[in-house]
Write a protein that binds this DNA or RNA. Structure first.
Lengths: 367, 367
DNA sequence: CCCCGCCACGTTAACGGTTCAGACGTGGGG
DNA sequence: CCCCACGTCTGAACCGTTAACGTGGCGGGG
């Protein structure tokens, strides 16, 4: 005989049913299928529930039985807080949230321990599917997601994992267009700033092996597109300095620009693989009293509001639509024609930060 | 990738155990308590799991059993996407995400249908607790959250619901300080812009009944603090026009300012209950070629980066810390000394948008 | 040699619901 | 009068896992 210390034990479907002298099914129906029982009985059930403090069917138990969690998981390799800092990520999230909202689904931000290979959070997430945003191809969390028997949509990953849908833009083509824009303006001596290319904290010049071996497909493709576009104008890629930055911030872009220009003062254009880095480049230029674009051309990628406000020449990509498409791909999988791929259009925005290349003999003021 | 994603009959702990001829517990232990079984056996289990495509213990079933979901829910009344738009909300989210991350907990954004009273999403959320951010006191979703038998932390709500922790700032005192700052500069004819005060879409002047009956405690308290501070200088609140705006955007602030100044051209200072609205006021001033602060003083509230960059006079509140505190309150509830209340400090930031009141006889250029 | 305790694993009973195939009256049509 | 459809409710079988406790074998102290 157990001592009934459960006086405060929360009521359950079963206890409610016992109290009322009806079956559990009936109580369940009172909540989920009002048409399956008479109105008076339903009222009695609901009344008893209020009296006993029964909070309604437990969502976890329901999920177990129905095999539906009512939420999609979002995996970012970055620290979670990054998602709220980077405007491109924010736009993506907004679109994804929109899609989730429309479908009545929750959005679970899965916590990851960057660097650390603790994937328990992925195993622990009760979700109906995953959206994977901007992670390395060899990320252990990503692998853990693929292990889970739920549908997955990856964003900006070109990999053809079986049964995994994909949404993204053609980074290669977009950057190729940017390269043509620049070579058309006469630029031949170009420097590049890119985001991190692989695991591990590294800041500095990235040689060709590091570029082609990059595990972030987005960065790899943008560099490749740029390379191809420059090659069309006869620019030897081996002579193009590429500087990589681990941190993705305006400060990092500023510092990287300083470093790049110090090592290669003849550069007439700094091409950045993100607007954030480009804003840093602009800040460096302003600090050094270089006029843009007369002394230096700066370009970005993404089309974030802050960059557009600054008149940055960049590639606009529809980040919000990307998020929404990812959500819809995941949530509206009626048919079984998979995997599906959504490639969204990009647009070259020519702002005020790109202009004709300065003459080779003209040097920076102050050098 | 050779992950068999379309296994017809997904393997379970039980089927794995049967296959191996061991008990389910042993398989469970292989995952959760490696020290509870011999290494060779564990290896055998894991090997069989890979062979049968068993993805590891089902998170939902585990949650049901352990009574732990490993996630906290976030309730916002606004559309989910709003959370990624408003910089104050973004800061809060970032702090909350930080706290969750540290605790290894997920963050579930609960979808709400604004206006609609569909609270199923709240019932459906498998979470260990809720954080409620900036909702009306009478919001049905909020009520549904309180129904759920999980701990809850509300942000910026002064209500003393039993057993509910709270984190926030002293809006009343902060705004009182702002009022003193303005009266100290000689301002007596003041106009106010505030965010929505109640349910329903309304834009326009808010009379006193609407102000004191506001169901958004934050707005109510800020107005009350302002009123008290102005009263100290002998300003009759009844003569202070208060304009309310449903939408919280720079555009809305701009339009509201236009409306306010059209009706009350003698106003020397526009006090806004948020930086976003204040940025709109500044934009209106710029458009009308009013110089700030010579022609018009503008103040905000929150201390968002964009406002600080513009030199806005405002009240800075630690939004990130607010989010973090909310998360910690929820996740670190070891002891049972509840309810707890965390009140964070605010700081009056005097920028370049507030100055001495212009003489009463001087009128706007163009009027 | 016996008993005790411990190690390593097994057994049982939840955890809280949903679902599906009926059971049980009831009334209407043939 | 029979049969069947119908509305309403019940019983039992899951869903996949873990907590709590049980058990058998083995080594060692008395």
């Amino acid at each position: 005989m157990r001592v009934p210390r459960d006086v405060r034990r929360p009521a359950t479907l079963a206890s409610l049913a016992a109290e009322l002298g009806v079956s559990r099914t009936t109580v369940s129906n009172a909540y989920n299928r009002p048409d399956q029982l008479s109105a008076p009985l339903r009222a009695r059930v609901l009344e008893a529930a209020r009296r006993l403090g029964y909070p309604g069917p437990d969502p976890v138990a329901r999920s177990l039985r129905t095999r539906r969690a009512g939420a999609v998981g979002l995996l970012l390799t970055e620290a979670l807080s990054y998602a709220f800092r980077d405007p491109a990520a924010t736009g993506f999230l907004e679109g994804l949230a929109l899609a989730c909202e429309r479908a009545g689904s929750g959005l679970l931000l899965v916590p990851v321990s960057p660097e650390l290979a603790d994937v328990t959070a992925v195993h622990q997430a009760g979700v109906d599917g995953f959206v994977v945003y901007s992670v390395r191809e060899d990320d252990p969390h990503f692998k853990a997601v693929l292990q889970r028997p739920v549908p997955t949509v990856v964003c900006d990953q070109p990999i053809g994992v079986e049964g995994v849908d994909r949404v993204g833009v053609d980074d290669h083509a977009a950057m190729l267009g940017m390269a043509r824009h620049l070579t058309g303006l006469g630029h031949r001596r170009i420097g590049v700033l890119c985001m991190r290319l692989g695991s591990g904290r590294y800041d500095g010049p990235a040689d060709e092996a590091r570029q082609t071996g990059a595990t972030y497909p987005v960065q790899r493709n943008r560099l490749a597109g740029l390379r191809e576009g420059l090659a069309e104008a006869g620019v030897d890629w081996a002579a193009v300095p590429v500087h990589e930055r681990f941190a993705h911030s305006v400060d990092a872009g500023q510092a990287a620009t300083a470093e790049l220009l110090a090592a290669h003062p003849d550069v007439t254009a700094v091409v950045c693989t993100s607007d954030i880095l480009a804003l840093g480049a602009l800040r460096h230029a302003a600090e050094r009293k270089l006029s843009v674009p007369e002394d230096l051309t700066v370009t970005g990628f993404d089309g974030v509001p802050e960059g557009l406000r600054a008149g940055l020449t960049t590639v606009r990509q529809p980040v919000l639509e990307k998020g929404r498409a990812a959500g819809e791909l995941l949530l509206e999988r009626d048919e079984r024609n998979r995997p599906r791929v959504v490639t969204l259009p990009t647009e070259l925005i020519v702002g005020v930060t790109s202009g004709r290349a300065r003459a080779p003999e003209r040097w920076f003021p102050g050098w």
